[in-house]
Amino acid sequence: MSTMVDKNMRILVVDDALTMRRIVINLLRQLGFNNMNEADDGTTAWEKLQLETFDLIISDWNMPKMTGIDLLRKVRTDAKYAQTPFIMVTAEGKRENVIAAVQAGVSNYIVKPFNAATLKEKLVKVIGEF
């Protein structure tokens, strides 16, 4: 299957750690994407999602104010984002977390630490070959 992926797609990177946001955004840039925005917690992310439209969300799990799983559940209640690819990134690889994320409608799941190859593999799975 070959899908034309728009490298200008709007991607929202959500993580309370500045380091992680920079890593993810840099790796995305290395993969050819160039339209990234960022938020440092779920609440800020939700506000941005309401103000603008994003085509892909990559979010950390553990964050203050609103966690990644809460953001995912909220996103899935919004018709605009019901089908938007959502990748969860977390340092905790607990089976119950993975299942909870799938039940909430996650598109894929990445365990930290990860590399560009893993990120690309997951992106291909959720948005298609590029």
Binding site: A17, R22, I23, Q30, N62
Partner: peptide, 16 residues
């Protein structure tokens, strides 16, 4: 350079 970025994952893991 990309590998250096990837290695910077350590910071987040260290903090946690």
């Amino acid at each position: 350079v990309t590998h250096i970025y990837e290695a910077c994952n350590f910071q987040d893991i260290t903090v946690q």
